[in-house]
């Protein structure tokens, strides 16, 4: 009887251990799989030439990813530029000032933003942001713009990463001990001075990690961006031009990717780039955030 129970326990342990290790290995499997798939396009073309060329002619077998990479960078940069100050101020207010009542009001709002699917943001972008840019922003600078621009994608993405950034900032700020704040307040500092000179200073690394995490989230976002970015191949020269970020490229062309030689491989290469960037960014920022968490405990 006892033996049976122990055997059962050991078996369960083995099974669970296996499941855990398999899930870790999954990251590797993904990397290897994407690499193998993108190997054909890397044959005869150097990695550098692939990401620095802007010639995109799949029919002729020319794959230059520069326009897509630049498009991704533009959109991500703009999204962080919009989301960073808003989430920083919101997070400071929520950790340093807010009464529980205010928090009870703001958290559900952030919950909603976090829960809405990408495609809903796309709909919102098409119905609100794109027409707004087309009729109110662009006319100041040019004759005509459809509104499907870097700016539209940046705004939509910015709103999408807001809840993530706020919650990460709150987590990071909460790791600062109250005594430190009180030490500053007791010297006659205002709350803002305390936030600026003690809390922000103490959490620089954590804030950086949070931002990097938000960057990687923004880079991989697909459908919403696809719906508002314009999808014109070319290096955008300003925020009021259309662009074509990497995820949009993959999503838009999956249908025809089997019809042309190397096309599938090229798209998998694009996915591999995304995978690599997100992997590195996530590893870096998570390791920093773990350190902070451990110090707190």
């Amino acid at each position: 009887m006892l033996r049976g129970r122990i055997v059962k326990d050991k078996m369960a342990q083995g099974l669970m251990c296996l499941l855990t290790i398999l899930s870790i290995l999954f990251v590797l499997v993904m990397a290897v799989g994407l690499y193998l798939k993108s190997a054909p396009v890397l044959e005869g073309r150097s990695f550098v030439s692939l990401i620095t060329s802007s010639e995109w002619k799949p029919m002729k077998g020319e794959f230059g990813f520069l326009p897509f990479i630049v498009g991704s960078l533009w959109v991500t940069f703009l999204a962080i530029l919009i989301a960073f100050p808003i989430s920083l101020l919101t997070a400071i207010y929520l950790t340093e000032y807010a009464r529980p009542k205010v928090r009870k009001l703001v958290f559900p709002a952030l919950d909603i933003l976090a829960a809405l699917p990408s495609v809903i943001y796309g709909v919102w972008g098409m119905l609100v942001i794109v027409p707004w840019i087309s009729s109110h922003v662009a006319p100041h600078f040019m004759d005509f713009s459809s509104g499907y621009t870097v700016l539209a994608a940046g705004i939509v993405l910015g709103v999408m990463v807001l809840p993530l950034l706020v919650s990460l900032f709150i987590e990071v700020f909460s790791s600062v001990p109250i005594e430190l704040r009180e030490a500053s307040l007791a010297l006659g500092a205002t709350r803002w001075q305390t936030a600026k000179k003690v809390v922000l200073r103490k959490t620089l690394a954590g804030m950086l990690a949070a931002t990097v995490l938000a960057v990687s989230r923004a880079m991989g976002e697909t459908i919403a961006v696809l719906m508002v970015c314009g999808c014109v191949i070319g290096i955008p020269k300003g925020v009021l031009e259309p662009c074509y970020p990497i995820p949009a490229l993959i999503a838009n062309n999956y249908g025809e990717m089997l019809s042309m030689p190397l096309y599938e491989s090229a798209l998998m290469f694009a996915a591999l780039i995304l995978f690599a960037v997100v992997l590195v960014f996530n590893l870096l920022s998570r390791i920093i955030l773990y350190r902070i968490e451990r110090k707190e405990a």
Binding site: V27, G33, L34, L213, M219, A271, F275, V278, N282, Y290
Partner: peptide, 23 residues
């Protein structure tokens, strides 16, 4: 390591899952 791996997988864009799954 496992927690790190799950955090990385959590951050992976769904388009990458899609592309990987497709291949």
């Amino acid at each position: 390591v496992a927690r790190l791996a799950f955090d990385v997988l959590f951050g992976m864009p769904s388009i990458v899952y899609g592309a990987f799954g497709f291949s």
